[in-house]
């Protein structure tokens, strides 16, 4: 077994592209679920809207990259408002079903052959990311970093931008939640009627939380789309949302840095398990009848499901969360 390659891959995963994407998506979800208590199961749709916003604007309409970013953000706000108007008055579990349905509607629509010319159908779109990489200060062909964290110029650029986005979003969430607005939001999570009796418009606050979380989700979509230099509809399915929930619950909901820590742990664990198992299978330590190298990926995701169950049962506040902050069943 090649431990240096295993540990190197694992170390890179801690700050890798997936970690950035999931951290951003989970920061957005944290605003909605962690602070406002909204059970939004449609976060994948916001990520998709961000990614497709850029892809469609640049590839199909032929407009510049920065306009794609604007389109993605506006689309995320629109989606949040459209989703929020009918669903925010619903009870928690109804909200979950409605949002998951809405996310599937978005995915099925962009992958449909009817809209192939606009959204690329089931194979998606590509070739929209160059506008972003043209802005890179790094020289192509060079590699950047130190120790195990050495990345090519393109990856280094998207990682730098991605982590700056993560830092900015964390700062925004931190400042927001310290403000009177954030205290009202947490109040809604704890007791909606009490906040209403103080004369606050609960519906408006929930809507604002949904919009802010959705916009941060769209930022995750930008990194997702640009980092892969392509968008494919099936990467934005409900499982993305479920994994983002796992990330959030792992790190600790209602904590500013919970999503970031959760994303890093999530991907470090996944990459470590994958690499160890692949090497163990390759070296013959694991018998063939038990596991082939393609089954390793499936075992990882079985463990994700198990981890989500165990977390929710035994430590719903996550690793760094505060149990008093997590009113998961506040009605």
């Amino acid at each position: 077994m090649d431990w240096s390659s295993i540990l190197g891959n694992t170390a890179r995963a801690a700050i890798g592209l997936e970690t950035v994407i999931y951290a951003l998506a989970a920061i957005g979800l944290n605003v909605q679920f962690g602070y406002a208590g909204l059970l939004n199961f449609g976060q994948a749709a916001f990520v998709a809207v961000g990614a497709y916003g850029i892809a469609v604007t640049v590839t199909v309409l032929g407009l510049p990259f920065w306009l794609g970013v604007v389109v993605g953000l506006v689309a995320a706000v629109l989606l949040a408002v459209l989703l929020g108007i009918p669903t925010l008055r619903l009870r928690a579990d109804y909200l979950a079903i409605a949002t998951i349905a809405a996310a599937e509607i978005v995915r099925l629509t962009v992958r449909s052959a009817t809209l192939r010319d606009q959204t690329g159908g089931s194979s998606g779109l590509s070739g929209f990311a160059e506008g972003f990489y043209d802005l890179s200060p790094f020289t192509p062909g060079q590699s950047y970093g130190f120790g195990p964290w050495v990345f090519g110029a393109r990856l280094a650029w998207i990682l730098l931008v991605g982590w700056v986005l993560v830092a900015v979003c964390c700062l925004v969430v931190f400042l927001l939640m310290r403000s009177p607005w954030g205290r009202v939001l947490k109040g809604i999570r704890e007791d909606e009627d009490a906040v209403r009796s103080l004369g606050k418009n609960v519906y408006a606050y929930k809507m604002q939380a949904l919009v802010i979380g959705g916009v941060i989700g769209a930022l995750a979509g930008f990194v997702f789309g640009v980092g892969r230099a392509s968008v494919q509809p099936d990467l934005y399915g409900t499982e993305l949302t479920f994994f983002v929930y796992t990330v959030l619950l792992l790190g600790g909901a209602a904590r500013v840095l919970g999503p970031v820590v959760g994303a890093a742990i999530f991907w470090v664990a996944l990459v470590l398990i994958e690499n160890v198992l692949v090497q163990a299978v390759g070296a013959g330590y694991v018998p063939d009848w038990l596991m082939s190298s393609t089954q390793v990926g499936q075992v990882r995701f079985m463990l994700v499901g198990l981890a989500l169950m165990l977390l929710m049962i035994f430590r719903p506040q996550g690793i760094f969360g505060d149990r008093r902050e997590l009113a998961i069943d506040a009605r």
């Binding site: 995963a13 592209l17 997936e18 999931y22 892969r228 990467l235 994958e274 393609t294 990926g297």
Partner: peptide, 8 residues
């Protein structure tokens, strides 16, 4: 590096 989402 493993690709996001469905990286097998």
């Amino acid at each position: 590096a493993p690709s996001p989402g469905v990286s097998a």
